[in-house]
């Protein structure tokens, strides 16, 4: 089996808190995988571990067949793993276009000297990146606000812009940390639609959220986390019917 991402026996402890304990799951190519669990279940820690922001105490992360455990975030991005943040993390005081351009580091930046000297290669790379970004902006429905300051956008647009920054890096796997948190029903639907469209472009997606309805309509498979460990994995139908899940998660939350 050739999973795109293979997480095995991942563990991380913060002081007395076992944030993630023996976490196992795979992401298949072309899949949208949901990770769900109540607050404190270790969802964000899992993303931080995979994206290299923090190092796991033990366990192994394999991406496209290669061991990437504890690899620095910027090197992971080069391999095609990107992530977004729970809070709307964007460059508030810059235009929408500039925001997305800054996301395109891996494709647009050709090293210090070639950009300093303005070599033909560097200029061509910047031009191509610029074109790709205009395309991405129209694809995300952000063309009309491309020259607006990011902080002036409505919250839902800011969330989409956050996605756009991540997508500008041309990922193979995008990990989205609560992409719909704080959004209205319509805005959440819009984000879900964007995620589906990303997925159709051959990008695998991990969506982390605690909203079961959002996750189960969007994802092909769901991993349920509880106290840092995997509680159940399966299709949305299976998971929502699983008595352990109902007791541990749905039972207490709804």
């Amino acid at each position: 089996m050739t999973a795109l991402l293979d997480v095995s026996r991942l563990a991380k402890r913060f002081g007395a808190v076992q944030a993630v304990e023996r976490l196992d799951f795979q992401v298949e190519p072309g899949e949208i995988l949901g990770i769900i669990g109540p607050n404190g279940a270790g969802k964000t820690t899992a993303i931080n571990l995979i994206s290299g922001v923090i190092r796991p105490d033990s366990g192994r992360i394999t991406f496209a067949g290669q061991d990437v455990t504890g690899m620095r975030p910027d090197l992971l991005v080069r391999r095609g793993v990107v992530r977004t943040f729970q809070a709307t993390t964007i460059y508030q005081e810059r235009t929408v276009r500039e925001n997305v351009r800054r996301g395109a580091f891996t494709t647009a930046y050709r090293g210090f000297w070639s950009t300093f000297l303005g070599t033909a290669g560097a200029r061509a790379a910047a031009r191509r990146a610029g074109e790709a970004i205009d395309e991405l902006l129209s694809w995300l429905g952000l063309s009309e606000v491309a020259d607006a300051e990011a902080r002036s956008l409505p919250y839902g647009f800011q969330k989409v812009l956050g996605l756009g920054i991540a997508l500008a890096a041309r990922p193979r796997l995008a990990m989205l940390d609560e992409p719909a948190a704080g959004l209205s029903h319509d805005e959440a639907n819009h984000v879900a639609e964007v995620v589906r469209r990303i997925n159709r472009e051959d990008v695998s997606v991990i969506v982390v959220d605690h909203n079961m309805r959002f996750i189960s309509t969007l994802c092909h498979r769901i991993v349920v986390l509880h106290h840092g460990a995997e509680l159940a994995t399966g299709t949305p139908q299976d998971v929502t019917r699983d008595p352990r899940v109902i007791e541990a998660y749905l039972g207490t939350q709804h």
Partner: peptide, 22 residues
């Protein structure tokens, strides 16, 4: 230059710039 763009990105949002591969 492009270097300046990412210098500014680092200052304004280090975490975000890092997750774009800088």
């Amino acid at each position: 230059s492009q270097t300046g763009r990412f210098i500014d990105a680092i200052r304004e949002g280090e975490r975000l710039a890092q997750s774009s591969g800088v």
